[in-house]
């Protein structure tokens, strides 16, 4: 009986972990899709601020690979910039989960969590 309980608990925990990892993976994927569609044009595929459209703008798009960017901006501030726009950058009309996904992706792909 004890072995059955351990097995069931183990399976539940394992499935929970797997689904959490899968959810994180999905969120990462959603963030990447959103980043590629909304940000990459100016900030670049590598997040270095050298996207194909970067030459159009003054000031230049932010470099997310620069540690200084992550020192000066927390998630709340990044979300506010995305929501309200900044300089030539437009204000994006994104849902809260999309906003979270995009910031998580930026953070993992280019920034502090890299």
């Amino acid at each position: 009986m004890k072995a059955v309980v351990v097995a069931v608990v183990g399976a539940v925990v394992g499935l929970g972990l797997l689904s959490a990892i899968a959810a994180e993976g999905l969120e990462y994927e959603q963030g990447k899709v959103l980043y590629d569609g909304k940000c990459q044009l100016c900030h670049g595929l590598k997040g270095d601020g050298k996207g194909p459209a970067a030459a159009s703008f003054t000031p230049k798009p932010s470099d997310f690979t620069n540690p200084k960017f992550w020192r000066e901006n927390n998630e709340k501030r990044i979300a506010e910039t995305i929501r309200k726009g900044h300089g030539p950058m437009p204000a994006f009309d994104l849902k809260p989960d999309e906003m979270k996904a995009i910031i998580d992706y930026m953070s993992h792909a280019f920034g502090k969590a890299k």
């Binding site: 459209a53 030459a55 159009s56």
Partner: peptide, 8 residues
């Protein structure tokens, strides 16, 4: 067009 316009 600017580079942004071209990419758009």
């Amino acid at each position: 067009l600017t580079p942004f316009g071209r990419t758009f």
